[in-house]
């Protein structure tokens, strides 16, 4: 990690945009962004039915920073995937910004994700053939040229904010774990999502990079982005405003 870049997130322009974004997006009063009711997810493995999530209900307000904390197999990842519309629930309902996810088609869900949800994965899931900047831009590759140009400027701004301005033309294999995860965060933020879902985002990076990543999440949360982060690490969970402990597919 380049210390100079870290201490000088410097890009004044990026910082100002961040502030403006925060002012524009911060709600006057807390409104529920996510409403989950009696959510259940059962996987069928051969003849067996495995209950990954059982009867979960909760509300998350806009602008919250939530940590889903629990051991491996507690149902954190399944819950994140359900909230992001990557999985369909077996029963129950999820509403995000008033939109009911249940019953939406695959393509409707994909469009919903593009406009509303950013994903950060434990193993980064960057596309190895693309540069850091192209990885950030990848969700816009089918967009018209005029929109791509505007998104390009924002992608550059995001990577600068992540202290990666000198690594934009590097491929993932040429980046450290921490740098790859910051590229993945920039990719997740490109479409200015209301909701950022992060599944063990520090699980595959060293502790220094982990702290830096958590600071970035904290900063992003201050702009009004709702963040839900799954972790088994209580130190990482302590960055959140609210901790939801999970065990055996239930919220404790």
């Amino acid at each position: 990690m380049n210390e100079k870049n870290r201490t000088n997130p410097g890009n004044r322009k990026g910082h100002d945009t961040l502030q403006k974004q925060a002012e524009g997006r911060k709600p006057k009063e807390k409104t529920p962004l996510i409403e989950v009711k009696h959510l259940q997810k059962v996987f069928t493995v051969g003849q067996m039915k495995v209950k990954a999530l059982g009867e979960v209900s909760f509300v998350i307000q806009q602008g919250e920073f939530i940590a889903l904390q629990g051991a491996s197999g507690a149902g954190k990842s399944t819950l994140l995937q359900l909230l992001g519309g990557l999985e369909q629930p077996s029963s129950g309902s999820i509403r995000i910004s008033g939109t009911k996810l249940h019953g939406m088609s695959e393509d409707e869900l994909a469009r919903f994700r593009k406009e509303n949800v950013g994903f950060v994965f434990q193993f980064f899931n960057l596309i190895p053939t693309l540069t850091a900047l192209e990885n950030v831009m990848v969700s816009r590759m089918f967009d018209p040229e005029s929109e791509v140009e505007a998104a390009w400027d924002y992608a550059v701004e995001l990577l600068t904010r992540m202290a990666l301005e000198k690594r934009m033309s590097h491929r993932p294999s040429e980046l450290s774990g921490g740098e790859q995860q910051r590229v993945a965060i920039a990719r997740a933020l490109l479409n200015r999502p209301k909701l950022l879902l992060a599944d063990e985002p520090t699980g595959n990076v060293d502790s220094g990079s982990g702290k830096h990543i958590m600071e970035l999440f904290k900063k992003e949360n201050r702009t009004g982005t709702t963040i839900i982060l799954a972790t088994h690490n209580s130190e990482i969970a302590s960055y959140a405003n609210r901790i939801m402990k999970m065990k055996d597919g239930r919220i404790m």
């Binding site: 695959e106 469009r111 089918f142 479409n191």
Partner: peptide, 19 residues
């Protein structure tokens, strides 16, 4: 497969994957 899964997760539709 994992790459295509990632693309779908970040908003690429099935039609766009076909393309």
């Amino acid at each position: 497969q994992r790459e295509l899964g990632t693309l779908k997760a970040i908003g690429i539709t099935s039609g766009q994957v076909r393309k």
